[in-house]
Structures are given as C-alpha cells and as structure tokens.
C-alpha cells in the first residue's frame, strides 16, 4: 500500500469517526427536543410543580437553577480569577507551592460530583448548620466548578503572548498594572467564553446538589424581594430544588400522572438553556473581541 492510499484511508476513517460523533450528538439532542418541546408552554415554564396532579410546571425549579448559578458564579469567579492570575502571571513554575496548587486543582477536578455533594452535605449542611440551602448548594458547585474555571482562565491568560508583558513593562508598567491593563483585557474574550461554558456545566449539574441544595422547592412569593424572608426568591438559606435535580427526582419517584411529560419538557428546557450558553459564549467572545480592539 503506498502513502497516498494510506492517506486516503486514514482520512476516510477520521471523517467517519467525526461523522459518528456528530450523529450521536444530533440523535441525542433531537430525541430530547422532539420528546420535550411539545410540552413546553408559558404555563409550564412559570407554574410551580405539582406533586400529585397533572399540569404542574417547572417555574420555581427554573428560577432556582438560574439563581443558584448566579450565586455559584459570584463565589467561584473571583477565586478562579485570582488563582488563574496567580498561576499564570506570578507563580514560579518550579516552586513547590505552585506544584501543590496545581495538584490540588487536578484532584479537585477529578472528584466525582456525587462525592463533592456528599462532602458538601457533611461539612456545610450538617457541620456548619447551613441546612439544605442555596448557599450549601452554591458552595458545593463552587468546588465542582473551581478547577475547570481556574484552568480555563489560566489558559486564557496563557494565550496572551509574552511580548505583550514585555511591552507593558517597557512602557513603565508594574507587573500588576500590566496584568490589569493589558493581559486581562486582552484575555477577556476567552475568559468570558470559559465562564459561560462553565455556567452551562453548572446549570446541568444534579448530583452535587441533591444533598446540598436539597430536593424540595418551597413556594416562592415573587413579590417579596427581601432576601431575609423565607419565601423570598432571593433568600439563600432556603432549600432549592433545581431543574436538573427535579428531572432526576421525577424519574426516580415522581407520582404525578404526567411525570413522563414533565420530565421530557424539563429535559428539553435544560438542554435548550445549556445550548444557549454554548452559543452565546461564542457570540459574546467575538463581540467582546471587536469591542476591545476598537474604540467607538
């Protein structure tokens, strides 16, 4: 067999593999969307769930998911940003501390999310007495999210060429100023991509939440924005079943007559939101890049 034929065969095989991957993804998405989209309605998206009768919605779970995502990001982004900047801009790659930080992050990222959830349960829910709450859930999700987010921020910073750092100091900037005024702005489009993609991952996470944010979704009063009231949507000490947990729960113990439909609809919503995150990550990043490189 000559090189040309070998090349042809290799190309063909690679195309086939790529095709299969796309096919699997398309089938999966298609199945979930075809099953679920017919059940979507404004009512379904906004009404509270009902445990025993048909016609319940996912309004509270959807809100819980988004709110929990927000709190998680508020907790994890500053830490991940700091860690990413430290690792890429300050840390001496040969030092023991850097090595340890990296190893910690790697181990953390390889922990199964169930374990993270259980840890969150034992430590925050029980030990620190935070109960099943948005806060406990957000902390668990922060553990879950931190390693990947840190890694993606670090990678974003690493793509900024060293020439830029030299140019900054040649203009008389301290290292910190170089990071703040040049490196971070330059890396912003990819940092945002990383954040939005990780948001998609966090949004769909269930296992880490079952024992931390809890499996119940008490009724919320959307007229009450005092975060200290128990029925306020903003209260972070209330239990908050999320969309992903809800899907898991309906499928394991749902007794409403339309459990099938609710589950399919909720799954479709989940997938759609995650897809929105993915697409907006791309869009945002190119938009920011344009904004950054020109001032109008």
């Amino acid at each position: 067999m000559n090189a040309k034929n070998a090349d042809k065969i290799a190309t063909g095989v690679l195309y086939a593999i790529a095709g299969i991957v796309i096919l699997i993804l398309a089938a999966l998405l298609g199945y979930i969307l075809i099953q679920g989209v017919p059940h979507l309605s404004w009512h379904f998206l906004t009404a509270p769930a009902s445990a025993f009768t048909a016609g319940g919605g996912i309004g509270i779970q959807l809100f819980n998911s988004l709110y929990l995502l927000l709190i998680t990001m508020l907790l994890s982004f500053p830490i991940a940003l700091g860690a990413g900047i430290y690792l890429n801009e300050y840390a001496n790659p040969k030092s023991k501390i850097t090595g340890m930080v990296r190893m910690t992050i790697e181990i953390l990222s390889s922990l199964p999310s169930v374990v993270v959830g259980l840890f969150g349960f034992l430590l925050f829910v029980v030990q620190f007495n935070l109960g099943f709450s948005i806060l406990s859930g957000a902390i668990a999700l922060t553990f879950f999210n931190l390693p990947l987010l840190t890694r993606s921020i670090e990678d974003a910073l690493a793509t900024v060429p060293d020439l830029q750092r030299e140019a900054g100091s040649a203009l008389g900037l301290s290292r910190w100023e170089t990071v703040g005024h040049i490196i971070l702005p330059a890396a912003l489009p990819s940092i945002v991509t990383g954040v939005v993609l990780s948001a998609g991952r966090v949004f769909g996470e269930a296992a880490a939440l079952i024992y931390t944010a809890g499996q119940s979704a008490p009724a919320l009063n959307f007229g009450d924005w005092n975060p200290f009231n128990i029925s306020s949507p903003l209260n972070i000490m209330r239990p908050a079943e999320t969309l992903a947990v809800h899907i898991w729960k309906i499928n394991s113990e749902g007794i409403m007559p339309d459990a099938q439909e609710v589950s399919a609809g909720a799954s479709a919503v989940l997938i759609i939101v995650v897809l929105i995150f993915n697409f907006s990550a791309r869009y945002l990043s190119s938009y920011l890049y344009k904004r950054l490189t020109s001032t109008k």
Binding site: A167, L292, T295
Partner: peptide, 23 residues
C-alpha cells in the same frame, strides 16, 4: 523603574501593539 522606563523607551524586534485600537 517605572519612571526610568518612561525616560528610556524600548522597541522590540516583533511589532507588539496591544490588542486595542491604534489610538
């Protein structure tokens, strides 16, 4: 050193504009 590098400027081999506008 900040003041020093303002008085002694530097241009590198590779053009290295920041990813901002010319202005």
């Amino acid at each position: 050193t900040v003041a020093l590098r303002k008085e002694i400027g530097m241009v590198f081999q590779q053009p290295n504009p920041f990813p901002f506008s010319i202005y």
